[in-house]
Protein backbone atom coordinates (compact mmCIF):
# COMPACT_ATOMS: atom_id res chain seq x y z
CA UNK A 1 0.00 0.00 0.00
CA UNK A 2 3.01 2.29 0.33
CA UNK A 3 3.20 3.00 -3.41
CA UNK A 4 -0.46 4.00 -3.53
CA UNK A 5 -1.36 7.36 -4.82
CA UNK A 6 -4.72 8.27 -6.34
CA UNK A 7 -3.14 9.79 -9.44
CA UNK A 8 -1.11 6.69 -10.23
CA UNK A 9 -4.19 4.57 -9.71
CA UNK A 10 -6.18 6.72 -12.08
CA UNK A 11 -3.41 6.69 -14.67
CA UNK A 12 -3.17 2.90 -14.59
CA UNK A 13 -6.93 2.69 -14.86
CA UNK A 14 -7.13 4.91 -17.91
CA UNK A 15 -4.29 3.10 -19.60
CA UNK A 16 -6.12 -0.19 -19.11
CA UNK A 17 -9.40 1.27 -20.37
CA UNK A 18 -7.77 2.55 -23.54
CA UNK A 19 -6.20 -0.83 -24.15
CA UNK A 20 -9.54 -2.57 -23.65
CA UNK A 21 -11.16 -0.09 -26.02
CA UNK A 22 -8.58 -0.71 -28.74
CA UNK A 23 -8.98 -4.44 -28.37
CA UNK A 24 -12.72 -4.73 -28.20
CA UNK A 25 -14.32 -1.69 -29.78
CA UNK A 26 -17.04 -2.75 -32.19
CA UNK A 27 -15.92 -3.83 -35.66
CA UNK A 28 -12.46 -2.31 -35.66
CA UNK A 29 -11.21 -3.72 -32.36
CA UNK A 30 -7.96 -5.66 -32.75
CA UNK A 31 -9.46 -8.71 -31.14
CA UNK A 32 -12.27 -8.86 -33.69
CA UNK A 33 -9.97 -8.15 -36.60
CA UNK A 34 -7.74 -11.05 -35.68
CA UNK A 35 -10.68 -13.30 -35.02
CA UNK A 36 -12.40 -12.54 -38.31
CA UNK A 37 -9.33 -12.76 -40.50
CA UNK A 38 -8.76 -16.33 -39.45
CA UNK A 39 -12.15 -17.42 -40.79
CA UNK A 40 -11.79 -18.87 -44.23
CA UNK A 41 -13.83 -17.01 -46.77
CA UNK A 42 -13.50 -19.37 -49.71
CA UNK A 43 -17.14 -20.32 -49.34
CA UNK A 44 -18.21 -16.71 -49.45
CA UNK A 45 -16.19 -16.04 -52.59
CA UNK A 46 -17.59 -19.10 -54.36
CA UNK A 47 -21.12 -18.12 -53.49
CA UNK A 48 -20.62 -14.54 -54.54
CA UNK A 49 -19.28 -15.66 -57.93
CA UNK A 50 -22.31 -17.91 -58.39
CA UNK A 51 -24.68 -15.12 -57.53
CA UNK A 52 -22.97 -12.69 -59.82
CA UNK A 53 -23.20 -15.12 -62.72
CA UNK A 54 -26.81 -15.89 -61.92
CA UNK A 55 -27.93 -12.28 -61.91
CA UNK A 56 -26.09 -11.54 -65.14
CA UNK A 57 -27.40 -14.59 -66.93
CA UNK A 58 -30.89 -13.51 -65.98
CA UNK A 59 -30.21 -10.25 -67.75
CA UNK A 60 -28.75 -12.22 -70.68
CA UNK A 61 -25.28 -10.98 -70.06
CA UNK A 62 -22.26 -13.25 -70.08
CA UNK A 63 -19.18 -12.56 -68.08
CA UNK A 64 -15.59 -13.65 -68.53
CA UNK A 65 -13.10 -14.33 -65.82
CA UNK A 66 -11.78 -10.80 -65.94
CA UNK A 67 -15.24 -9.32 -65.47
CA UNK A 68 -15.68 -11.41 -62.39
CA UNK A 69 -12.36 -10.38 -60.94
CA UNK A 70 -13.15 -6.76 -61.65
CA UNK A 71 -16.62 -6.80 -60.11
CA UNK A 72 -15.94 -8.71 -56.92
CA UNK A 73 -13.90 -6.98 -54.29
CA UNK A 74 -11.68 -9.85 -53.30
CA UNK A 75 -8.04 -10.66 -53.76
CA UNK A 76 -7.54 -11.56 -57.47
CA UNK A 77 -5.62 -14.71 -56.72
CA UNK A 78 -8.29 -15.96 -54.36
CA UNK A 79 -10.99 -15.45 -56.98
CA UNK A 80 -8.97 -17.29 -59.64
CA UNK A 81 -8.38 -20.17 -57.28
CA UNK A 82 -12.07 -20.36 -56.49
CA UNK A 83 -13.09 -20.24 -60.14
CA UNK A 84 -10.77 -23.11 -60.86
CA UNK A 85 -12.16 -25.12 -58.05
CA UNK A 86 -15.72 -24.34 -59.12
CA UNK A 87 -15.16 -25.52 -62.65
CA UNK A 88 -13.52 -28.63 -61.22
CA UNK A 89 -16.64 -29.31 -59.15
CA UNK A 90 -18.79 -28.64 -62.21
CA UNK A 91 -20.55 -25.62 -60.75
CA UNK A 92 -19.48 -23.55 -63.73
CA UNK A 93 -18.27 -24.29 -67.21
CA UNK A 94 -15.86 -22.09 -69.06
CA UNK A 95 -16.72 -21.96 -72.72
CA UNK A 96 -14.20 -20.02 -74.69
CA UNK A 97 -14.26 -16.59 -73.19
CA UNK A 98 -17.38 -16.71 -71.07
CA UNK A 99 -18.14 -18.36 -67.79
CA UNK A 100 -21.49 -20.13 -67.54
CA UNK A 101 -23.42 -21.71 -64.72
CA UNK A 102 -24.06 -25.41 -64.93
CA UNK A 103 -27.35 -26.87 -63.73
CA UNK A 104 -25.94 -27.61 -60.29
CA UNK A 105 -24.27 -24.21 -60.25
CA UNK A 106 -27.51 -22.43 -60.92
CA UNK A 107 -29.32 -24.54 -58.32
CA UNK A 108 -26.72 -23.50 -55.81
CA UNK A 109 -27.05 -19.87 -56.85
CA UNK A 110 -30.81 -20.05 -56.44
CA UNK A 111 -30.38 -21.32 -52.91
CA UNK A 112 -28.24 -18.32 -52.07
CA UNK A 113 -30.72 -15.95 -53.66
CA UNK A 114 -33.47 -17.64 -51.70
CA UNK A 115 -31.60 -17.23 -48.43
CA UNK A 116 -30.84 -13.61 -49.21
CA UNK A 117 -34.39 -12.63 -50.06
CA UNK A 118 -35.88 -14.59 -47.20
CA UNK A 119 -33.57 -12.84 -44.80
CA UNK A 120 -34.57 -9.46 -46.16
CA UNK A 121 -38.18 -10.46 -45.72
CA UNK A 122 -37.41 -11.52 -42.18
CA UNK A 123 -35.67 -8.23 -41.40
CA UNK A 124 -38.63 -6.34 -42.80
CA UNK A 125 -41.29 -8.33 -40.99
CA UNK A 126 -39.78 -9.14 -37.66
CA UNK A 127 -37.15 -6.54 -36.85
CA UNK A 128 -36.85 -2.81 -36.79
CA UNK A 129 -33.72 -2.46 -38.91
CA UNK A 130 -33.73 0.42 -41.34
CA UNK A 131 -34.67 -0.40 -44.88
CA UNK A 132 -31.32 0.80 -46.16
CA UNK A 133 -29.57 -1.76 -43.97
CA UNK A 134 -31.49 -4.83 -45.09
CA UNK A 135 -29.46 -5.56 -48.19
CA UNK A 136 -26.11 -5.43 -46.47
CA UNK A 137 -27.22 -7.63 -43.61
CA UNK A 138 -28.73 -10.15 -46.00
CA UNK A 139 -25.48 -10.18 -47.99
CA UNK A 140 -23.79 -11.51 -44.89
CA UNK A 141 -26.54 -13.83 -43.77
CA UNK A 142 -27.04 -15.56 -47.12
CA UNK A 143 -23.76 -17.40 -46.60
CA UNK A 144 -24.74 -18.64 -43.19
CA UNK A 145 -28.27 -19.97 -43.64
CA UNK A 146 -28.38 -23.66 -44.44
CA UNK A 147 -31.01 -25.07 -46.73
CA UNK A 148 -32.99 -26.45 -43.82
CA UNK A 149 -32.77 -23.21 -41.91
CA UNK A 150 -33.99 -21.33 -44.95
CA UNK A 151 -36.97 -23.68 -45.20
CA UNK A 152 -37.86 -23.17 -41.55
CA UNK A 153 -37.51 -19.42 -41.90
CA UNK A 154 -39.67 -19.48 -44.97
CA UNK A 155 -42.52 -21.29 -43.30
CA UNK A 156 -42.22 -19.07 -40.23
CA UNK A 157 -42.77 -16.13 -42.53
CA UNK A 158 -45.74 -17.83 -44.16
CA UNK A 159 -43.86 -18.94 -47.31
CA UNK A 160 -43.74 -15.50 -48.84
CA UNK A 161 -43.61 -15.19 -52.58
CA UNK A 162 -41.82 -11.86 -52.78
CA UNK A 163 -39.13 -10.14 -50.77
CA UNK A 164 -39.71 -6.61 -49.47
CA UNK A 165 -38.33 -5.11 -52.69
CA UNK A 166 -40.88 -7.09 -54.67
CA UNK A 167 -38.30 -9.53 -56.01
CA UNK A 168 -39.55 -13.10 -56.19
CA UNK A 169 -38.19 -15.54 -53.61
CA UNK A 170 -37.27 -18.87 -55.23
CA UNK A 171 -39.15 -21.77 -53.65
CA UNK A 172 -37.21 -24.63 -52.13
CA UNK A 173 -37.59 -26.51 -55.40
CA UNK A 174 -36.20 -23.56 -57.30
CA UNK A 175 -39.40 -22.20 -58.80
CA UNK A 176 -39.65 -18.45 -59.22
CA UNK A 177 -42.74 -16.33 -59.55
CA UNK A 178 -42.87 -13.71 -62.29
CA UNK A 179 -43.07 -10.02 -61.51
CA UNK A 180 -45.72 -8.51 -63.72
CA UNK A 181 -45.81 -4.78 -64.13
CA UNK A 182 -44.81 -1.65 -65.93
CA UNK A 183 -42.11 0.85 -64.92
CA UNK A 184 -43.54 4.12 -63.63
CA UNK A 185 -41.70 5.96 -66.39
CA UNK A 186 -43.90 4.27 -68.98
CA UNK A 187 -47.29 4.98 -67.43
CA UNK A 188 -49.63 7.59 -68.84
CA UNK A 189 -51.23 10.42 -66.91
CA UNK A 190 -54.17 9.40 -64.75
CA UNK A 191 -53.17 5.75 -64.40
CA UNK A 192 -53.66 4.24 -60.96
CA UNK A 193 -51.41 1.41 -59.94
CA UNK A 194 -49.82 -0.38 -57.04
CA UNK A 195 -46.06 -0.45 -56.64
CA UNK A 196 -44.92 -4.06 -56.88
CA UNK A 197 -41.17 -3.78 -57.22
CA UNK A 198 -38.36 -1.37 -56.51
CA UNK A 199 -34.97 -2.29 -57.94
CA UNK A 200 -32.32 -2.32 -55.24
CA UNK A 201 -29.55 -1.77 -57.74
CA UNK A 202 -27.85 0.55 -58.44
CA UNK A 203 -27.61 1.41 -54.82
CA UNK A 204 -27.42 5.18 -55.23
CA UNK A 205 -30.75 5.32 -56.96
CA UNK A 206 -32.29 2.84 -54.55
CA UNK A 207 -31.28 4.93 -51.56
CA UNK A 208 -32.72 8.01 -53.22
CA UNK A 209 -36.02 6.24 -53.74
CA UNK A 210 -36.07 5.16 -50.12
CA UNK A 211 -35.24 8.65 -48.98
CA UNK A 212 -38.38 9.79 -50.78
CA UNK A 213 -40.41 7.39 -48.63
CA UNK A 214 -41.73 5.38 -51.55
CA UNK A 215 -42.67 1.82 -50.69
CA UNK A 216 -43.85 -1.43 -52.16
CA UNK A 217 -47.59 -1.80 -51.97
CA UNK A 218 -48.45 1.88 -52.09
CA UNK A 219 -51.14 2.89 -54.55
CA UNK A 220 -50.10 5.75 -56.81
CA UNK A 221 -51.70 7.92 -59.42
CA UNK A 222 -49.74 9.61 -62.19
CA UNK A 223 -50.46 13.34 -62.26
CA UNK A 224 -47.95 14.82 -64.64
CA UNK A 225 -45.39 13.53 -67.05
CA UNK A 226 -42.70 15.41 -69.01
CA UNK A 227 -39.42 14.11 -70.38
CA UNK A 228 -37.67 15.67 -67.39
CA UNK A 229 -39.94 14.65 -64.54
CA UNK A 230 -42.81 12.50 -63.46
CA UNK A 231 -45.19 13.51 -60.74
CA UNK A 232 -47.49 11.15 -58.92
CA UNK A 233 -49.58 11.18 -55.77
CA UNK A 234 -49.57 8.48 -53.17
CA UNK A 235 -50.93 8.22 -49.65
CA UNK A 236 -51.71 11.89 -49.50
CA UNK A 237 -48.37 13.14 -50.71
CA UNK A 238 -47.02 14.34 -54.02
CA UNK A 239 -43.78 12.87 -55.38
CA UNK A 240 -41.67 14.20 -58.20
CA UNK A 241 -39.08 11.88 -59.71
CA UNK A 242 -36.52 11.99 -62.46
CA UNK A 243 -37.28 9.40 -65.17
CA UNK A 244 -34.27 7.26 -64.26
CA UNK A 245 -35.60 6.84 -60.73
CA UNK A 246 -39.11 6.25 -62.02
CA UNK A 247 -37.75 3.57 -64.35
CA UNK A 248 -36.62 1.55 -61.35
CA UNK A 249 -40.09 1.42 -59.84
CA UNK A 250 -42.54 -1.10 -61.24
CA UNK A 251 -46.28 -0.91 -60.74
CA UNK A 252 -49.14 -3.17 -61.59
CA UNK A 253 -51.95 -1.16 -63.10
CA UNK A 254 -55.24 -1.29 -61.21
CA UNK A 255 -58.74 -1.33 -62.60
CA UNK A 256 -60.33 2.02 -63.16
CA UNK A 257 -63.01 1.65 -60.49
CA UNK A 258 -60.55 1.69 -57.61
CA UNK A 259 -61.20 4.76 -55.51
CA UNK A 260 -58.05 6.73 -55.17
CA UNK A 261 -58.02 8.66 -51.94
CA UNK A 262 -56.97 12.24 -52.32
CA UNK A 263 -56.72 14.74 -49.45
CA UNK A 264 -55.19 12.20 -47.11
CA UNK A 265 -53.24 13.16 -44.06
CA UNK A 266 -51.10 11.38 -41.52
CA UNK A 267 -52.24 10.62 -38.00
CA UNK A 268 -49.15 12.35 -36.63
CA UNK A 269 -50.42 15.77 -37.66
CA UNK A 270 -53.77 15.47 -35.89
CA UNK A 271 -54.23 18.31 -33.40
CA UNK A 272 -56.11 18.46 -30.15
CA UNK A 273 -59.90 18.43 -30.49
CA UNK A 274 -59.76 17.36 -34.12
CA UNK A 275 -61.35 14.10 -35.19
CA UNK A 276 -60.56 12.01 -38.21
CA UNK A 277 -61.32 8.75 -39.91
CA UNK A 278 -58.70 6.10 -40.52
CA UNK A 279 -58.12 5.36 -44.20
CA UNK A 280 -55.48 2.72 -43.81
CA UNK A 281 -52.00 1.84 -42.67
CA UNK A 282 -49.13 2.60 -44.98
CA UNK A 283 -47.26 -0.37 -46.40
CA UNK A 284 -44.15 0.72 -44.57
CA UNK A 285 -45.57 -0.89 -41.47
CA UNK A 286 -45.33 -4.61 -41.98
CA UNK A 287 -45.53 -7.90 -40.24
CA UNK A 288 -46.27 -8.13 -36.55
CA UNK A 289 -46.45 -4.43 -35.92
CA UNK A 290 -49.02 -4.03 -38.67
CA UNK A 291 -51.13 -6.82 -37.21
CA UNK A 292 -50.90 -5.32 -33.76
CA UNK A 293 -52.11 -1.95 -34.99
CA UNK A 294 -55.04 -3.61 -36.73
CA UNK A 295 -55.88 -5.55 -33.59
CA UNK A 296 -55.74 -2.39 -31.54
CA UNK A 297 -58.50 -1.02 -33.76
CA UNK A 298 -56.64 1.08 -36.32
CA UNK A 299 -58.77 -0.30 -39.13
CA UNK A 300 -60.27 1.42 -42.12
CA UNK A 301 -63.20 3.64 -41.18
CA UNK A 302 -62.51 3.88 -37.43
CA UNK A 303 -62.93 7.27 -35.77
CA UNK A 304 -59.80 8.63 -34.14
CA UNK A 305 -59.01 11.59 -31.91
CA UNK A 306 -55.87 12.93 -30.29
CA UNK A 307 -56.17 12.15 -26.59
CA UNK A 308 -52.92 13.05 -24.90
CA UNK A 309 -49.75 14.93 -25.66
CA UNK A 310 -46.61 14.06 -23.80
CA UNK A 311 -44.13 16.13 -21.80
CA UNK A 312 -41.42 15.18 -24.27
CA UNK A 313 -43.62 15.43 -27.36
CA UNK A 314 -43.43 11.76 -28.28
CA UNK A 315 -45.33 9.37 -28.04
CA UNK A 316 -48.91 10.62 -28.21
CA UNK A 317 -52.06 8.84 -27.18
CA UNK A 318 -54.97 8.49 -29.56
CA UNK A 319 -58.51 7.72 -28.63
CA UNK A 320 -59.71 4.88 -30.79
CA UNK A 321 -62.76 2.70 -30.24
CA UNK A 322 -63.13 4.00 -26.71
CA UNK A 323 -59.57 3.47 -25.53
CA UNK A 324 -56.53 5.63 -25.32
CA UNK A 325 -53.59 4.07 -27.15
CA UNK A 326 -50.10 5.51 -27.14
CA UNK A 327 -48.08 5.40 -30.36
CA UNK A 328 -44.73 6.87 -31.25
CA UNK A 329 -44.88 9.64 -33.82
CA UNK A 330 -42.93 7.69 -36.42
CA UNK A 331 -45.65 5.04 -36.35
CA UNK A 332 -48.47 7.55 -36.30
CA UNK A 333 -46.98 9.16 -39.37
CA UNK A 334 -47.60 5.92 -41.22
CA UNK A 335 -51.29 5.77 -40.46
CA UNK A 336 -53.36 7.52 -43.09
CA UNK A 337 -56.38 9.54 -42.07
CA UNK A 338 -58.95 11.86 -43.49
CA UNK A 339 -59.83 14.73 -41.21
CA UNK A 340 -63.49 15.35 -40.54
Amino acid sequence: MNTYNPITALAVFFALSILAYLLFRPNKGWFWLIKNSSVSNDKIVVEDVLKLLYHNENADKHLNVNDIIRTLKYNDKLILECINRMSHHALISIEGDSVKLTKSGSDYALRIVRAHRLWEKFLAEKTGFKESEWHERAERMEHELSKVEADILSSQLGNPQFDPHGDPIPTNTGKIAKVKGIPVSELSIGTIGRIVHIKDKPEIIYKQILAENIHIGSVIRIMEKTPARIEFHSEGEAFVLAPIMAGNITVSVLEKDVVFEENLARLSILKENETAKIIGISKEIRGDSRRRLLDLGFVKGAEVKLDLLNPLGDPRAFLIKGTSIALRQNQASKILIQKD
Binding site: T127, G128, F129, K130, I285, S289, R292, L293, L296, D307, L308, P315, A317, T323, S324, I325, A326, L327, R328, Q331
Partner: peptide
Protein backbone atom coordinates in the same frame (compact mmCIF):
# COMPACT_ATOMS: atom_id res chain seq x y z
CA UNK B 1 -33.40 -0.10 -34.70
CA UNK B 2 -36.08 0.42 -32.14
CA UNK B 3 -39.18 -1.48 -33.02
CA UNK B 4 -42.68 -0.24 -32.58
CA UNK B 5 -44.31 0.75 -29.35
CA UNK B 6 -47.95 0.69 -28.47
CA UNK B 7 -49.46 0.93 -25.06
CA UNK B 8 -53.03 0.93 -23.93
CA UNK B 9 -53.67 3.52 -21.23
Amino acid sequence: EVSTFNLEL
